[in-house]
């Protein structure tokens, strides 16, 4: 219990350090100016979001393979945490888009892909609420989670080809060391916070199942003999 909160505290400390550095010590970028500071929170959430979805994919395979409830709990915790990061990623992405491209939303490859991914994973969470049987819920969560994760790269390439006729992909230039540092610190910060979220969420899911259900079979009855 205490160990779990350590992740949260370390994450909090790191994100404070990283953000203060990113907002003050780091110099403005050559073209984007101060707006580039948004990237210090945007990029780490994006990396971690993908990483957490990768975790969810792994947990889902384990859940399908073993049928053990703890993997279902892990999958759910990872999906929900991933959705939170996904929302952040979209939010910061839009805020970054306005000053740099002049519009809030652009059908950019990464923005589009992450929006569709958000719908995917939110739909899985919605699906879960409609299934009462825990076994079936676990199976269907795992199946949809696996398909969604496999589909994310397909969407990415699909959107990229689709957009390629309109404009050239904007790719970040090589970053200065002063930019790399806050980005790395915040990446670890978001990672620690995400792990904390997942542990908390898993604990909730587990105690919900335990309090809702009688885990132990009923006491064995005496059998009348023939």
């Amino acid at each position: 219990m205490k160990k779990m909160h350590a992740f949260g505290l370390v994450g909090l400390a790191l994100i404070i350090v990283g953000s203060i550095y990113g907002l003050t010590a780091s110099p403005p970028e050559r073209h984007m100016g101060d707006v580039s500071r948004i990237l210090y929170v945007h990029v780490p959430t994006a990396w971690n979001c993908l990483l957490i979805y990768l975790f969810a994919f792994g947990f889902a395979i384990a859940s399908l393979w073993t049928g053990k409830q703890r993997w279902d709990i892990a999958t759910t915790a990872a999906i929900e945490t991933g959705v939170v990061l996904n929302i952040l990623l979209l939010g910061t992405g839009m805020i970054f888009a306005k000053p740099t491209w002049g519009i809030w939303w652009d059908w950019d490859v990464r923005l589009t892909t992450s929006l569709i991914a958000l719908i995917f994973y939110a739909a899985i969470l919605a699906l879960r609420t409609f299934i009462d049987d825990p076994n079936r819920r676990a199976t269907l969560t795992a199946v949809t989670c696996i398909i969604s994760f496999v589909d994310v790269p397909l969407i990415y390439f699909g959107v990229r080809w689709w957009r390629s006729l309109h404009q050239i992909q904007s790719s970040p230039e090589t970053m200065a060391e002063t930019m790399v540092f806050p980005m790395r610190v915040n990446a670890f910060a978001v990672l620690f916070i995400s792990i904390w979220f997942m542990l908390l969420r898993a604990r909730i899911e587990r105690s919900k199942l335990e309090s809702d259900e009688v885990v132990e079979p009923p006491v064995r009855r005496a059998m009348a003999t023939a």
Partner: peptide
Amino acid sequence: RLKSQDVLMPLLLFPLEVPVLLA
């Protein structure tokens, strides 16, 4: 057999189909 099949199926299916749709 799920209570809200008519909503859930397109909700799950259509995002998946985005690459096919675009292409």
